[in-house]
C-alpha cells in the first residue's frame, strides 16, 4: 500500500524572516541604500584609525581646495581643519544621535501606542490628547527650544530629538494595535487565560513590527537631519565635529569656497537618502505578501 506523504518534504524549512537580507538586496534601490549605510557606518567605525587626531585641530593652511594637497583629499576649511577628518568623525555623531534619538522615540511611541490601543477608553483619550499636544508643536522648533534652554550637548540634543519625534510612531502603533486588539488572536489568548502584559508583548507588538521597523529607519534619517539643522544654527555640541556644524561654518565662505559647506552637505544628503531607500526596501521586504513569493 502506498503511504501518502501528507507533510511537506523534509528539506530544511526556510523561515519567512531568514530571507530578509536577500529580499532586500534583490531590490536595487534598497541594495544601494544598504551599501551606502554600511559605508557610512564603516567611516564612523574607522574614524579614530584613519584620522587619529582631533578633527577640530588646525592641521595646515586654510582654504586648501580638494585635491590641492594629497594629504588632505577633501581640502581644509577657513581655520585649516581637515574636512575629510571632519566627515569621518561627523559620521559618528550623526549616526549616534540618529540611532539613540530613534530609540528614545521608539520607547515612548511604542509604549504610548500600545497602551492607548490596547486599553482604549479613558486612558486612550488622555494619551492621544497628549500626543496631539506634541503634534501641534512643530518638532524642529520644539527641539530647538529644548536645546536652547538646556546646554547643547550630545545627550540633550539626542533627548530633544527623541521626545519630539515620537507622536507619529505612537499613532502608527496605536492603529496597528487597534487592528489586532479585537481580532481572534487576542480573543483566543484571553480565552486561554493570558495576562494583558503577555498578550501585548508576545502577541501584539511582534505583529506590529514591520511598519515600526520601516518608520524607525525613516526616523533615523529625520533625526540626522534635525541634528544637522540644530548644528547649522549653532546649537550643536561645540566639543564635537558634526556635519551640520560644518555646513554652518562653511556658509560664510559659500561664495568663494563653496566646497567647505558642500562636502558635509553631500554627506548629510547621502546618509538621509541611504536610510530612506532602506526604509522603502524594508517596507516591501517585510510585507508578508512579498515574503510569500
Amino acid at each position: 500500500m502506498t503511504v501518502f506523504e501528507i507533510s511537506a518534504p523534509a528539506a530544511p524549512a526556510p523561515r519567512a524572516r531568514d530571507g530578509l537580507l536577500l529580499r532586500l538586496l534583490r531590490q536595487p534601490s534598497a541594495a544601494v541604500g544598504l551599501t551606502l549605510l554600511v559605508l557610512i557606518i564603516a567611516m564612523a567605525a574607522s574614524a579614530n584609525l584613519v584620522f587619529p587626531d582631533d578633527p577640530l585641530d588646525m592641521v595646515t593652511q586654510p582654504f586648501l581646495w580638494p585635491g590641492e594637497d594629497a594629504a588632505y583629499p577633501l581640502g581644509t576649511d577657513m581655520l585649516g581643519r581637515d574636512i575629510a577628518s571632519g566627515i569621518f568623525h561627523g559620521a559618528r555623531v550623526s549616526l549616534l544621535i540618529g540611532a539613540v534619538a530613534t530609540l528614545v522615540s521608539l520607547v515612548i511611541g511604542v509604549g504610548t501606542g500600545a497602551l492607548s490601543g490596547y486599553y482604549g477608553g479613558r486612558l486612550d483619550a488622555v494619551l492621544m490628547r497628549v500626543t496631539e499636544l506634541f503634534q501641534t508643536i512643530p518638532p524642529f522648533l520644539f527641539a530647538l527650544a529644548i536645546v536652547a534652554i538646556l546646554q547643547p550637548s550630545i545627550p540633550t540634543i539626542t533627548v530633544a530629538i527623541g521626545i519630539t519625534a515620537w507622536p507619529s510612531l505612537a499613532r502608527l502603533v496605536r492603529a496597528e494595535v487597534l487592528k489586532l486588539r479585537h481580532g481572534e488572536l487576542v480573543q483566543a489568548s484571553i480565552a486561554l487565560g493570558a495576562s494583558d502584559l503577555r498578550i501585548i508583548v508576545l502577541h501584539i507588538l511582534p505583529n506590529t513590527l514591520a511598519p515600526v521597523i520601516v518608520s524607525a529607519s525613516i526616523l533615523v534619517a529625520s533625526a540626522i537631519l534635525t541634528e544637522s539643522s540644530l548644528a547649522f544654527l549653532g546649537l550643536g555640541d561645540p566639543n564635537v565635529v558634526s556635519w551640520g556644524g560644518m555646513v554652518g561654518a562653511g556658509r560664510e565662505v559659500l561664495r568663494t569656497d563653496w566646497y567647505v559647506a558642500t562636502i558635509p552637505g553631500l554627506a548629510i544628503v547621502t546618509a538621509v537618502l541611504a536610510l530612506n531607500l532602506l526604509g522603502d526596501g524594508l517596507n516591501d521586504a517585510l510585507n508578508p505578501k512579498e515574503a510569500a513569493r
Binding site: Q187, A191, G193
Partner: peptide, 21 residues
C-alpha cells in the same frame, strides 16, 4: 480559570494562532 479549567477553541484556526511564533 480560563485556559486552566475552561478553554475555548474558535472557528478560524489561522487567526487564532500568532503568525510570528
Amino acid at each position: 480559570l480560563r485556559g486552566a479549567r475552561i478553554a475555548m477553541i474558535f472557528q478560524e484556526p489561522m487567526t487564532a494562532l500568532n503568525p510570528v511564533l
